[in-house]
């Protein structure tokens, strides 16, 4: 994709982190983070384990609380105000490493639950939307099954569809393929690539560098709670500036 095309696709900032700090007890897990994600931008966050990348992404929809600095999502600042938090969560979809589907509900019920109760859609409309998204993640035939009857890859695709049913403006992915068997990673990545093509704003924590090269507008490398380096993927992979980035890329691209 050329730069000019990217520029027309990418709009105004939709996520802003300003001087964000967070501690777990005495452990300083996020250190003065500054990050801006624009509408339509695809950001891939990578870094060694324990670097704070999951914590950062979880701060964006307040699954974790930051202690200093500002986080503004879709024009709403995240504060302790529950109204703001719930407003932001309606616009931000999240996909977890462990899928976190609701095991007591069928696939269809998993997908329609939030649209019916949070968006107050009529059941019929919610089900139509749900079937549409199941089609898009290529498992329409599993609608009446329970999550426990599906494979890991299918479950993760259901989880993605569940988030999409809320028609979010932003999708957060927290290591979506890390808990999958190798043969199922591709089916999930394919769905994510398609989503990226459609212009969804995405922040994705992942170690799948092939995926990152394909979809990312911006690569972010984190280590020890800091954003060490960021830039377009071509530059990031070919010509990393920091030694820590070089070391990390060397480790994960060597095989």
């Amino acid at each position: 994709m050329t730069d000019s095309a990217a520029e027309t696709r990418i709009g105004e900032p939709i996520i802003e982190l300003r001087h964000v700090d967070k501690w777990f007890g005495d452990f300083h897990v996020l250190k003065d983070l500054n990050l801006e994600v624009k509408r339509g931008e695809r950001v891939v966050v990578c870094g060694p384990s324990g670097s704070g990348k999951s914590t950062m992404i979880r701060c964006i929809n307040r699954l974790e609380e930051h202690q200093r600095g500002q986080i503004i999502v879709a024009g709403i600042e995240l504060t302790a105000d529950v109204k703001n938090i719930e407003a932001i969560r309606r616009e931000v979809g999240m996909v977890f490493q462990q899928f976190n589907l609701f095991p007591h509900l069928t696939v269809l019920e998993n997908l329609t639950l939030a649209p019916i109760w949070v968006r107050k859609l009529p059941r019929k409309e919610a089900e139509d939307t749900a079937r549409l998204y199941l089609e898009r993640v290529r498992i329409p035939e599993q609608a009446s099954k329970y999550p426990g009857q599906l494979s890991g890859g299918q479950q993760q695709r259901v989880a993605i569809a569940r988030s999409l049913c809320m028609k979010p403006e932003i999708m957060l992915f927290d290591e979506p393929t890390s808990a999958l068997d190798p043969e199922m990673i591709k089916e999930v990545l394919d769905v994510m690539i398609e989503l990226a093509r459609e212009g969804m704003t995405m922040v994705c924590v992942t170690h799948e560098m092939g995926f990152a090269r394909t979809v990312a507008d911006t690569m972010v490398f984190m280590d020890r709670g800091e954003i060490v380096e960021r830039g377009p993927p071509t530059e990031f992979f070919a010509n990393p500036k920091s030694d820590r980035t070089k070391l990390f890329l060397g480790q994960i691209l060597s095989h």
Partner: peptide, 20 residues
């Protein structure tokens, strides 16, 4: 994870408790 999934979908406390 069940709480987090419910939260991330925007369910409130009572909805989360009752439905999930």
């Amino acid at each position: 994870g069940q709480y987090e999934a419910a939260d991330s979908l925007g369910l409130g406390y009572w909805q989360r408790t009752r439905l999930i």
